[in-house]
């Protein structure tokens, strides 16, 4: 039905209002993109695209800016946090859908959602005052003792554990994204038709075999979509890790080193960026993140759509 084809004038008003509300979303996205591009133009002109993306220099005094250390930190912390979060989250989802007795499903589900509702600045303060001392005095020395002597792997665990580093930030991020991955995985697992599961049980399959051969293959696209959504969240997370990452613009190999992500750099330096080119470089950095997040979310959408189509048949 076309807009305004109703006879009542109120219908026309109502449908135009909803249309305006919807189009405003597109307007805002384009508006933000426009601001990002126009503000970062001086930096784009000065540093170019390839040079900005591949330079590791970040020196406000000499006005030399490159994004690589930030991109590196963003990808590394996101990857590590997914590495920690995915097994835990999928485990939670399997437990809640297939294993837990009914009286446990509710409380665990609520607990997961509560975890998702904690504002990220609280994770940040908790990370700085509670988690990071624990990491530096207990967990990281232990990891160093176990993995340090192993060749190659040991490189990841060099240096003095300070608790303000890539590892601590990744642990906080993983706790933040577990709820997303877990609840989307749970919903995907629930999509598995019970007829199929029951048939499997009927021919004598164990619970483990049903989960491994029926539930997971059936819902893996949905789970994957959930993972990519969490990835988007981890990419853009700021306050939770702004305190514990150290904002160090260097490419380092050890997990015990401080690093910088795009968001952490923005949070730390935006307020006091006093030169025009400095501010412009920060906007440029923001645009890089915008594109990165946009691509990951588009991918997530694509996989989820594909999954839906497959199972709605």
């Amino acid at each position: 039905m076309a807009i305004g084809s109703g006879k009542n004038p109120l219908d026309l008003v109502f449908s135009s209002l909803t249309a305006i509300a919807s189009f405003s979303v597109i307007f805002f996205i384009l508006g933000i993109l426009y601001v990002l591009i126009s503000e970062s133009l001086p930096a784009i002109e000065r540093f170019g695209v390839i040079k900005f993306l591949t330079s590791t220099d970040w020196d406000p005094v000499k006005e030399s800016f490159g994004a690589l250390t930030n991109i590196y930190g963003t990808i590394l912390t996101t990857f590590l946090s997914l590495l920690i979060a995915i097994p835990v989250a999928v485990g939670i989802a399997i437990f809640v859908t297939e294993i837990a007795p009914d009286f446990l499903k509710g409380p665990i589900g609520i607990a997961i959602e509560l975890l998702a509702a904690i504002p990220s600045i609280i994770y940040g303060m908790w990370g700085l005052f509670t988690l990071s001392p624990i990491m530096s005095s207990h967990i990281e020395p232990l990891l160093k003792r176990i993995f340090g002597p192993i060749p190659l792997v040991g490189l990841l665990f060099q240096g003095t554990p300070m608790g303000i580093d890539i590892l601590t930030a990744s642990v906080i991020l993983s706790i933040m994204i577990i709820p997303f991955t877990a609840s989307i995985s749970r919903d995907s697992f629930n999509l598995t038709p019970s007829v199929v599961k029951e048939s499997a049980y009927a021919i004598g399959a164990t619970k483990w075999e049903v989960i491994k051969n029926i539930v997971i293959p059936y819902s893996k696209l949905g789970v994957f979509g959930g993972i990519v959504l969490s990835l988007g969240r981890a990419l853009g997370e700021t306050m939770a890790i702004a305190f514990v990452l150290g904002n160090n613009h260097r490419i380092t190999t050890s997990l015990f080193d401080a690093a910088a992500t795009i968001t952490v750099t923005l949070a730390n330096e935006f307020a006091e960026a006093d030169k025009d080119i400095y501010l412009s470089a920060l906007f440029y950095l923001a645009m890089v993140l915008f594109i990165m997040s946009f691509v990951t979310l588009a991918l997530a959408k694509y996989f989820l759509l594909k999954a839906e189509r497959k199972y709605s048949r």
Partner: peptide, 26 residues
């Protein structure tokens, strides 16, 4: 050089006075 943010040759960064203080204390 000098400025509100400079490229420190060595060391680790804490966010805000409270970040630096917390870090030095620990």
């Amino acid at each position: 050089g000098e400025g509100k943010a400079v490229k420190f040759p060595v060391g680790i960064g804490g966010k805000g006075n409270e970040g630096v203080a917390n870090y030095v204390k620990r």
